[in-house]
C-alpha cells in the first residue's frame, strides 16, 4: 500500500486485513467457493469442457497410433498426463477473466477476504471442477490406451497429487494476464513451462509403476512441487492482480 492509512474504526463488521481476519472471513471464502462451483455447473459454466477434451485425446490417440497394444501401453502414461494437462489449460482463463469483466474482482479486492485467500479459493474451485473429474476419469481412459494393470493405482495417485499444482500454477498465470483481452494465448505460453516439471514427474511415476520399479521418488518430488506452489503462488497471484487492477 503506497497510501498511508490512519487506523480507522470499523462500522458494523469492519476488520483490518489479516489482523482481524476471523470467522466471517472464513465464511466469506466458503461462500466464494460455493459460488464458483455453482457458476461452473450452471449453463455455460464450462464444467465438463476439460473432461470432454481429455476423452477426445484418449479416444483419438489409439486411432492415430494404430492398434499395436504394446506401443499404446508404453506411451499411455505420457499421453494421459499430457491430455490431463492440456485439459486443465483449457479452462484457466476463466478463473479471473470473468470476474474481471463483470466487476466482481474489484469488489472482491475491496472485500474483507484477503486477495490471497480469493486466489487460493478460486484455484481450489478450479481443481474441484477440473482436476478431480480428470483424476476420476483417467482409469477408464487408461483402458482405451491399453495401460498395463500395474499402472492404474499410480495413475490415479499421481493425478490426484499433481493436478492441484496445475490449478494453482494456472491461477497464477491467469492472475498475470487479468485485464488482457483475449489473453488465452499469452496465458498458455506463460503457464506451459511452469507445468513441465509436474508433467515429467507425474508421467515418470506412472511409467515406473507400470515397469514395476519404485515410483515413490518422482511422486514425492511432484508432491513437493504441488505443496510449494499451493503455499507460495497465491501470494504472487494476489500481487499480480493488485497491479493489474490499477
Amino acid at each position: 500500500m503506497f497510501l498511508q492509512r490512519g487506523s480507522g474504526r470499523g462500522f458494523g463488521c469492519g476488520r483490518d486485513g489479516w489482523a482481524g481476519f476471523g470467522v466471517a472471513g472464513g465464511a466469506g471464502m466458503w461462500a466464494l467457493l460455493i459460488r464458483d462451483l455453482r457458476l461452473a455447473v450452471r449453463a455455460g459454466g464450462g464444467f465438463g469442457l476439460g473432461l470432454a477434451f481429455f476423452l477426445l485425446v484418449a479416444v483419438l490417440v489409439p486411432l492415430g497410433v494404430g492398434p499395436e497394444g504394446d506401443v499404446l501401453g508404453r506411451i499411455a502414461p505420457g499421453i494421459l498426463w499430457v491430455g490431463a494437462l492440456l485439459a486443465c489449460l483449457l479452462s484457466l482463463d476463466r478463473i479471473f477473466a470473468l470476474d474481471f469483466e463483470d466487476g466482481s474482482l474489484d469488489l472482491l479486492a475491496t472485500a474483507p477476504i484477503p486477495l490471497e485467500g480469493v486466489v487460493a479459493v478460486k484455484a481450489l474451485a478450479h481443481w474441484l471442477v477440473t482436476g478431480v473429474p480428470l483424476t476420476l476419469a483417467a482409469p477408464v481412459l487408461g483402458v482405451l490406451l491399453n495401460l498395463p494393470a500395474a499402472g492404474y493405482g499410480w495413475l490415479v495417485l499421481s493425478l490426484a497429487l499433481g493436478t492441484p499444482a496445475l490449478s494453482v500454477i494456472g491461477a497464477f498465470g491467469a492472475a498475470l494476464v487479468v485485464g488482457v483481452k483475449r489473453g488465452g494465448l499469452l496465458l498458455s505460453l506463460l503457464v506451459l513451462p511452469l507445468y513441465v516439471p509436474t508433467l515429467i514427474f507425474g508421467a515418470e511415476a506412472v511409467s515406473r509403476g507400470v515397469a514395476g520399479q519404485a515410483a515413490e521418488v518422482p511422486l514425492l518430488l511432484m508432491t513437493g512441487i504441488t505443496l510449494g506452489a499451493a503455499a507460495l503462488l497465491p501470494f504472487a497471484a494476489a500481487a499480480a492482480i493488485r497491479i493489474n487492477l490499477r
Partner: peptide, 16 residues
C-alpha cells in the same frame, strides 16, 4: 484502495 496514490493521504482504511 484499488490503486496507489502519487502522494497524499486518506485517513480511513479501505476496510471501512
Amino acid at each position: 484502495g484499488l490503486q496507489p496514490a502519487l502522494e497524499g493521504r486518506v485517513s480511513v482504511p479501505p476496510e471501512s
